[in-house]
Design a binder for these strands. Structure first.
Lengths: 359, 359
DNA sequence: AAGCCGCATGTAAACGTTTACATTTTACAA
DNA sequence: TTGTAAAATGTAAACGTTTACATGCGGCTT
């Protein structure tokens, strides 16, 4: 009798325990509020979303129940039903440094202002990670801002639904199928080189950005064209490798100082490398701009506080984030009525001490 | 006959158009893959999630259909069914500057490594925005990392379900109900002041952080206690206001230079303010550290590249992000088996030129 | 041939919320 | 009192996906 009971009873109770443990309480659901208030779930939804007719006394009763039960709607259920998430995806190559930090700041402020939130991911310029990030975003975002020097139209089309609004930031994609905002790298670099030329420099070096990087290639092109327009042949010995980090800027200076004759000015393709270069020049006992002038690109917030203050191409990084989010939100709201635009954003120069101005 | 047709036909077709327009195609669903492959949706799920028994030929057929239709599972449906989102929420006071950027970097790397992604939000130390951010996170994240000097246990309990794992970063909450990681601000500041004292400085000023800010208060306390332990009475005229930004650091220096006698060392409560202070000292023609020594707090990556390189309390910012995510993921995975811990993270000193070392 | 077992696959319901349409209630006029 | 219209509320199904359990098929043994 005991064996009989045991063998008969255990499978049944184990199955029931299994079912019970599946139903872990996430937190209060709309059903519990409805029951507590003595109304249907539709009425709770109507009250909390301020939709449709509801008797005031019923409304108050539901409100009180929701308050007592600390009900917060579950975004998963809501999103599935409404088919919108009220989130914008932001895919950046990296999540550190002042440049991306400023993009993020502009993006966050703008999204929050419209009651959207950000889902942020980084791809480390790795195709596999780009694919993973894009895949992960599906069902989580209403629109997407992508900033990646390695992106191409094929990847986007393969990984994203056609209906998802996408804004490309500084991507080497020239398709009219996507909105894009692109910094005028060529002109920014061009004008900066012209400025250094106007200071009398004829031997101008460049610390290049990452190989196979869209921004890096464009900034190098601006440098090259500006020199050529002034009858100066660009020399490869004045073009040092860098990867947009402070340390590679530091190292590049050592290589450039080994050239004979030495450059009299250095253009770093981003401010981080300029900061590293500045440090290396200081360590080498070279006065800036007295012996070698220096210029950067991006004008990150800290540039103005350096010693000497850094002359830099201003791209309005924060504004980049703001405009990207504005654009994607417009596309989200207006569907097919949104007209895709490809915009080139002008740069300007912030002239400070490092080039020789303001001494 | 025409009138008859028109009045009879239009209401019916209008209703059907209304229904059709509701069903906008998001993108390929599991149902379409199932139909394309000639199997049930359960089989598609089994194939794509590698669960249960599936015949190899069926498996291949389903895979091919999914590939052809470019099927990507919808996170909304998946999350609702599985009751997990595979996302971690990260709530920071702000989303700019190297400090938060470094936290973000550590968090992103760690989350990605575990195939989780981040949902990032900022609260600007505003209670309303904290509430909005916490509410927004519900249903979107499996766990939460909160960094806010204004948070208290009450807000957390009112806004979050009891079952949601939460890790507090540098929050003034001393509850054993939450995991927490807190930088040892007091000791960090204390040791830095002792170091400046060891350089012979007896008149040490402080640029304080934001009023009513937990970190700021603790760092001020460390400064005060260290002075008192060396028989030096802290003077309010040597305690300048700041708000953790470069510009307030710059302004604070002007006020401190007006003191008579002048301080011989300045401790800024974060590196951003130290950078601003450095710039102001340079503008005032004061040699650092020859005339006035300078120290910061946080040791952001750029500190080493400044002129002079900045001495700073090292907190391992990146590691902070890493550990926070590790902790919350552990809690997510182990539920009640996870033991809550409140950890004080030690600091160290990065001694560079600005205090007088390494000359 | 019948029965049993294991494997593959399908059916139905779940998850939390929204909303179209059906049903009930209420208020007012005749 | 009755009827009508408007307001309030409820029911059922949708959204996309997962999964417990039911069902069908094939192979093997007696």
């Amino acid at each position: 009798m005991r064996l009989h009971e045991k063998s008969f009873f255990c499978p049944s109770i184990c199955k029931r325990l299994h079912k019970v443990t599946k139903k872990l309480p996430m937190s209060t659901t709309i059903k519990e509020v409805a029951q507590h208030a003595g109304v249907s779930i539709a009425t709770v939804s109507r009250v909390l979303n301020n939709v449709g007719p509801v008797d005031e006394r019923t409304r108050e009763r539901v409100r009180e129940s929701a308050r007592q039960l600390r009900y917060v709607p579950n975004a998963m259920g809501r999103s599935l039903s409404r088919r919108k998430t009220e989130a914008i995806g932001l895919l950046l190559p990296d999540l550190f440094g002042e440049f991306f930090s400023e993009v993020l700041r502009g993006s966050d402020q703008t999204a929050q202002h419209s009651n959207y939130h950000l889902v942020v991911s980084s791809s480390h310029n790795n195709k596999k990670e780009i694919h993973a990030a894009l895949t992960m975003m599906r069902g989580r975002v209403d629109g997407l801002v992508v900033m990646s020097p390695h992106i191409d139209a094929e990847i986007l089309k393969e990984n994203l639904p056609p209906s998802l609004p996408v804004v490309l930031l500084n991507c080497p994609v020239e398709s009219r199928e996507f909105d894009s905002l692109t910094i005028d790298n060529v002109n920014g670099a061009h004008v900066m080189i012209e400025h250094l030329l106007s200071h009398g420099h004829t031997r101008i070096a460049i610390i290049k950005g990452t190989e196979c990087n869209f921004d890096a290639a464009e900034r190098l092109r601006g440098y090259t064209v500006a020199l050529q327009e002034h009858g100066i042949a660009p020399e490869t010995c004045l073009q040092a490798e860098g990867d947009f980090s402070e340390s590679t800027g530091y190292d590049a200076v050592h290589r450039l100082l080994a050239q004979s004759p030495r450059p009299t000015a250095i253009f770093a393709c981003n401010d981080s490398m300029a900061i590293g270069a500045l440090s290396a020049l200081r360590d080498a006992g070279i006065r800036v701009p007295g012996e070698i002038a220096l210029a950067g690109f991006d004008d990150v917030p800290i540039a103005a506080y350096l010693t000497p203050s850094l002359t830099s191409v201003t791209v309005g990084i924060h504004n980049l984030g703001v405009r990207a989010i504005d654009t994607v939100l417009h596309a989200v709201r207006h569907h097919n009525a949104h007209h895709k635009q490809q915009i080139i954003l002008p740069t300007s120069l912030s002239l400070r001490e490092s080039c020789g101005c303001h001494q």
